[in-house]
Structure formats: structure tokens, C-alpha cells
């Protein structure tokens, strides 16, 4: 089981009932393929950053889900053939967090020391390596296992 997140944009002209039905339908696709919906967050109507099929706004739906590596393909196929879905994107989640990461050792010292020096010294920026040797790849098709801890990234 991998962790994924999906965002899809529904036609803003859709009636609420039809919209609810579609959201249920896509959640059903996840469930029917052995996945599990972790969270559904309807962002609601938003202006699109660019027009898609002459549409300037859409109804955004965010879904966090777990599933087998084959699930994203099946899900995006379902999203793709639905004409009410303007666009969709599935992203594989890593066990990294977007929040502040606790780094006990030598975290406080270098930072406070670097800050004043930043004004003068034209040294190359110290590339701080993340201690966790986690793989960089964040794309969906990857198959390495992601031990489920909690939903990262979407801590709201």
C-alpha cells in the first residue's frame, strides 16, 4: 500500500447533487480496487490559473487515499473518461513532512551563527542534507513501500 493524493477539478456548472454523486463514484473506484479513502476535502469553487476548455473556474476536490501501485492508473483512467472532470492529478506521497522537522543535534548552533555572517561572507550556501536517507522520487508509478504513519503534507 502506498499513500497517494488526488486533486481533481469538476465542472463548476455541475449541480450539487451530481457533484456529490461523482465524488462518491470516484471514492467508490478507490474502494473497489482495494484502496482506502483517507480524507476528502472539497476545496470548492476556485478560479483556474488558466482556462481549460474555455472554463475559467472549477470545483476542486482533494482526496488522500492509500492503495496498491496499480490503483492510480485505474483511478486516473476513470477520471480521464469522465467529461465532468476538467483535470486531475495523482501524486504519490512520501513520508516526508512539509512542516518543521525536529533536528536535535547541531540544529540551533549553526543557524544562529550563520545568520550574522550572512551579511559579509560570500561563501557558497551550505547545502544542508536531510539526515533521513529517504528517496527523492515523488512520482506516482514508483513502487517502493511507504510505511504508513500518518497523512503527511496535508496537516490542516
Amino acid at each position: 500500500m502506498n499513500k497517494y493524493e488526488l486533486i481533481y477539478i469538476l465542472d463548476a456548472a455541475l449541480e450539487e447533487a451530481a457533484r456529490k454523486e461523482l465524488i462518491e463514484k470516484f471514492n467508490g473506484v478507490i474502494a473497489a480496487n482495494g484502496g482506502e479513502v483517507v480524507k476528502v476535502d472539497e476545496w470548492g469553487k476556485r478560479r483556474l490559473a488558466y482556462t481549460i476548455d474555455y472554463k475559467t473556474e472549477g470545483y476542486y476536490v482533494y482526496v488522500a487515499f492509500n492503495g496498491a501501485p496499480e490503483l492510480p492508473r485505474e483511478l486516473s483512467r476513470n477520471l480521464g473518461i469522465n467529461e465532468s472532470v476538467i483535470r486531475s492529478q495523482i501524486v504519490k506521497l512520501l513520508d516526508k513532512k512539509s512542516s518543521v522537522k525536529p533536528r536535535p543535534v547541531r540544529a540551533a548552533a549553526p543557524v544562529t551563527e550563520e545568520a550574522p555572517a550572512a551579511v559579509e561572507a560570500p561563501v557558497a550556501p551550505a547545502a544542508e542534507e536531510a539526515p533521513a536517507a529517504a528517496p527523492e522520487a515523488t512520482d506516482a508509478p514508483a513502487t517502493e513501500e511507504a510505511p504508513a504513519t500518518e497523512t503527511p503534507a496535508s496537516e490542516e
Binding site: 482533494y62 501524486v91 512539509s98 550572512a118 550556501p125 547545502a127 544542508e128 503534507a153
Partner: peptide
């Protein structure tokens, strides 16, 4: 001297959301 703001904040993952 420029410092990476994400390093300063110890950001592990930059979220597109």
C-alpha cells in the same frame, strides 16, 4: 551571502498545495 530559506526552516518536503 544568501541562505536557503527552506533549509533555515528545515523543510523536508515542499508541498505543491
Amino acid at each position: 551571502r544568501k541562505v536557503c530559506a527552506f533549509c533555515v526552516d528545515k523543510i523536508e518536503y515542499i508541498d505543491y498545495k
